[in-house]
């Protein structure tokens, strides 16, 4: 296959970027999208040009490092996969592919197609955990958890933190990401003691990072490589309003 790539090149967050066109030649349909970029980068390196910078690591769809907004879709046109799992057989010979970085105020560009997603880490740090120290915990089977609840919690826990939800949302909202963790821990008995405190801290941090609001369009759900459901957001809303409007305990910034 031969393809034309329109790739966003930007040296760093401070300088302006632009699209640059590249030819990708002799591409095998069995290659993954990132392997196709590897081929382009090898030829750029041979010419002494700077290779295209993009984030990637595990290349099996689980680390959440790869991104790329391909022809109007985060992680490309196929559902339920990441860019590293996207194979070139999805495209046709001679096609022009436009590759952009995730676009969001809260995700500043690092270089070319890589963005800074540390906002996600900060949201998790604000409360995405159960406050237990190592040791001194009860036996794993001490609290039975109904299978349906454990499975539902797992469905939320499967989030890989790639940021496709933000990239897909017309408002660059991070609510699917945030709600997935809140829902996971909110469903499990282990998460109950901090359930209402957690949702408040995480939402506050999310707002601080400059993400947009949710308008329930469902674009995030459609583009999520792990197919996390929009229902998570509703659960988060419920917990949040419950915490803010109906709980009596004092709400204050938690130390840890």
């Amino acid at each position: 296959m031969n393809l034309t790539l329109k790739v966003w090149r930007q040296k760093n967050a401070q300088t302006a970027g632009k699209f640059v066109s590249y030819k990708a030649e002799n591409i095998s349909p069995d290659m993954s999208f990132l392997e196709m970029l590897d081929v382009v980068n090898e030829s750029l390196t041979h010419k002494g040009d700077e290779p295209i910078n993009f984030d990637h690591d595990c290349r099996e769809g689980i680390c959440g490092m790869c991104s790329l907004y391909i022809n109007g879709h985060p992680h490309g046109p196929k559902r339920g996969i990441t860019t590293c799992q996207l194979h070139m057989r999805t495209f046709h010979d001679g096609e022009t592919i436009t590759i952009e970085p995730w676009r969001a105020e809260a995700f500043p560009i690092v270089k070319d197609l890589a963005v800074d997603r540390s906002a996600f880490d900060r949201i998790q740090q604000a409360g995405g955990y159960v406050s237990v120290n190592t040791g001194g915990v009860p036996d794993g089977n001490a609290i039975p958890i109904p299978k349906v609840i454990a499975d539902e919690a797992f469905n939320s826990a499967t989030c890989i933190g790639c940021g496709a939800c933000v990239a897909a949302c017309k408002n660059a909202s991070a609510m699917l990401f945030v709600s997935a963790k809140i829902t996971q821990l909110g469903l499990l008995p282990q998460g109950q003691p901090e359930r209402y405190r957690r949702v408040q801290s995480m939402v506050a941090q999310m707002d601080e990072e400059g993400f947009g609001s949710c308008t329930n369009t469902g674009a995030c759900e459609a583009e999520c490589p792990k197919e996390i459901k929009l229902t998570n957001i509703a659960r988060m809303n419920n917990d949040y309003f419950s915490a803010k409007l109906f709980r009596e305990e004092e709400v204050h910034e938690q130390g840890h």
Partner: peptide, 29 residues
């Protein structure tokens, strides 16, 4: 207010319009 805030959350727009699966009405409220 929300629209303005949401616009600010993405100061640089995409060159290729989003093709994600969201209903027309939800995107044009």
């Amino acid at each position: 207010i929300l629209t303005v805030k949401n616009r600010k959350a993405r100061p640089v727009r995409y060159a290729v319009a989003a093709k994600s699966d969201a209903s027309w009405s939800s995107k044009n409220m």
